[in-house]
Design a protein around this nucleic acid. Structure first.
Lengths: 114, 114
DNA sequence: TCTGTATATAGCCAAATGGGTATATACCTC
DNA sequence: GAGGTATATACCCATTTGGCTATATACAGA
């Protein structure tokens, strides 16, 4: 699984997105991260494993605690991928496309593209 | 499954991302979309079903063809979600955090936060 | 109406996912 | 070193996923 696959797959789960959102505020232990969820600790550990494998978190050591910290780099790559579609969702592409189509339609037959 | 779940899950597969990339250039039939892949037509149809369920494509009718067109709106929502992390991946947050930490450390004990 | 083309559906299968419980491990404190 | 806390691991289970082949459906054109 490549980086982009792993990133998007990790983001596809609402529990994992909530964990990442929590980590915006700073490091947190597994217990702290688990607290808001009606879910067992091992299940949270599994989600953290997915996030770590995707490079979205890194883990330290503080006595028994393994604090998680956000690693946003893969999010930047996901953002880069999405950027290619920005023109389209902003509607500019469709308008430009329609404009170019109209211009082409006005051309005399056989005229070359510019 | 909510919209963001469906969007990120759809984007987690490289075949589906390639299909979306192809659709930037405009509508395409299933056969046209399948052509670059060493994969059966039914498998492509399944991927298209996932993309359609996520609202990332819509489908028309042109004789036997069911042309696919890109629907970028859900990508905008995914982008909005990622935006919250932009400060972090750009490193500004860490620097700001460090700055705030340093400012706090300089304060006389007992002084209130501003 | 028959034939070909484009697409969808059904059913099969192996692997991955997301949850659970029980238990192991690591580390601190007394 | 005994007990407590934090976390990880091992299994179990049901569901989903992503591929396949075979077949059905929809439509065009001769």
């Amino acid at each position: 699984m490549n980086q982009l696959d792993a990133t998007f797959a990790a983001l596809a789960d609402p529990t994992r997105r909530a964990i990442l959102a929590r980590l915006i505020q700073g490091e947190a232990s597994v217990m702290e991260l688990a607290e808001p969820f009606a879910m067992s600790q091992p299940s949270i550990s599994k989600h953290l494993k997915v996030l770590e494998a995707a490079g979205l978190i890194s883990r330290g050591r503080d006595a028994q605690r393994r604090p998680c910290r956000l690693e946003a780099r893969p999010l930047a790559e996901a953002n880069d991928w999405l950027e290619r579609y920005r023109n389209i969702w902003e509607g500019n592409f469709q308008r430009l496309d329609a404009l170019l189509g109209a211009m082409q339609a006005e051309k005399a037959p056989g005229e070359a593209d510019q």
